[in-house]
Write a protein that binds this DNA or RNA. Structure first.
Length: 114
DNA sequence: TAAGTGACGATCG
DNA sequence: TCGATCGCCACTT
């Protein structure tokens, strides 16, 4: 499973999300060269190797909702981590209009170097 | 080989 | 905004 070469590409893309910003699963899939494979992104986040620090909590659903049910341990942790970066989380949801990451060409080129 | 399963997305009511 | 539905696709059983 973690042999899948696409996973590494996905993790690197997630690493390129700047602090204080968030991205959707579909957006990550697109940037990683896997358009339409949002579900694969979700899976890969569950397989992040422990020796890699990936800001998985900056990835949300396309609606801005957290991927986990409100009140779950994971959701509370994710909410805390996002608020530490000044991202407002209200009722298990983030305002994408204010916090969604919009990659610039420079950021994309930087990502490709990694 | 077929059926079940998801940290999803778009659409509809 | 919310839940139900369907389409989607890699992976598991």
């Amino acid at each position: 499973m973690s042999h899948n070469p696409h996973y590494k590409q996905i993790w690197q893309t997630v690493c390129a999300i700047p602090a204080g910003k968030v991205a959707s699963y579909g957006q990550i899939a697109d940037l990683a060269g896997l358009p339409g494979r949002a579900r694969l992104v979700g899976k890969s986040l569950g397989y992040i190797p422990s020796d890699m620090s990936v800001p998985w909590y900056r990835v949300l659903r396309s609606s801005g909702q957290l991927a986990f049910p409100k009140g779950s341990e994971q959701a509370m942790k994710q909410t805390g981590l996002l608020q530490d970066e000044n991202v407002a989380v209200l009722s298990n949801r983030v305002k994408l209009a204010s916090f969604q990451w919009q990659p610039t060409l420079e950021e994309m080129l930087w990502k490709l170097q990694q």
